[in-house]
Write a protein that binds this DNA or RNA. Structure first.
Lengths: 141, 141
DNA sequence: TCTTAAATTGTAATTATTCCAAAACAACAA
DNA sequence: TTGTTGTTTTGGAATAATTACAATTTAAGA
């Protein structure tokens, strides 16, 4: 049985071609796409697709922890990610590339003297990526 | 000389009543307001105010590091903050209150083996706040 | 006071997202 | 395999946040 079918079944979600398309697209294209990018990509082979379907399913899958939603501070679109294990994002302010950062932040230890109950932590990094740094060096020479 | 005038001058920005209004509003009301909330609050005493002015100025001030912009993952509006020193936000999923969290995260040390140059780190916490936790306990009794 | 570049205003346009009602479909039972 | 039912999909319209633009006004230096 297909892994995406298994994934959906384990959350008691109905198997639809739209859901499978979204999951496989996210899994095979780790580019942190927006709802619109997912929509456009899938629509190529399934022209009847509606944008509402994308939003509905994204919603359901985020709630079921199958995919993760995140956004950058200064961006107005949500982005999505198949991976749900702890990781962060680095965005380059020059090339706008988004890199996964696989570290684990000690976000709870520091929180001690606040009495709020932390359930989630979200964080991202911004700066200039390795590639763009190297380009700059070459120009200077 | 007024501290907001000084602040604007130090960034070579023109002094306008609109800018002074925005700054004093943000400084005196530490509620992380959205653009619309700032607009409505200032419009009461300056009815000629345009929303575009709010957006323009917010933009200029963020770029000049006078105020800070941030947003929560699942919200679609930007929020603003007079404080520009390192601090994070905790949002309560019950009462939606936003609390400042004055800690400093060791976000750079962990980053070592990536070659990207980090310039900024953004993070926020989500959970249930002290108040809401206490309310729940009382109900149970 | 004069000049000029920058800021403000109001309206219109755009973008992301949500709402809604009708039609289509998946899953389960008979 | 077919019928039933509740869920999903669709498309169009509505909303919310933000941006674009052109005309008017204004701050600040000469």
């Amino acid at each position: 049985m297909d892994k995406y079918v298994k994934e959906l079944k384990s959350h008691k979600l109905k198997i639809t071609s739209q859901r499978l398309d979204i999951l496989s697209f996210l899994d095979e294209n780790r580019v942190h796409p927006s709802a619109d990018e997912i929509y456009k990509a899938i629509k190529i082979n399934s022209p009847a697709l509606s944008k509402t379907t994308i939003y509905n399913n994204i919603d359901v899958m985020v709630k079921n922890n199958i995919i993760k939603a995140f956004r950058f501070m200064d961006s107005n679109e949500l982005r999505f990610d198949y991976k749900t294990t702890e990781h962060y994002h680095f965005i380059c302010r020059k090339c706008k590339n988004i890199y996964d950062v696989d570290i684990s932040l000690p976000y709870l230890e520091k929180f001690e003297h606040y009495k709020h109950k932390v359930e989630e932590f979200y964080g991202d990094y911004k700066g200039v990526c390795e590639n763009c740094l190297n380009k700059k060096k070459q120009k200077k020479k």
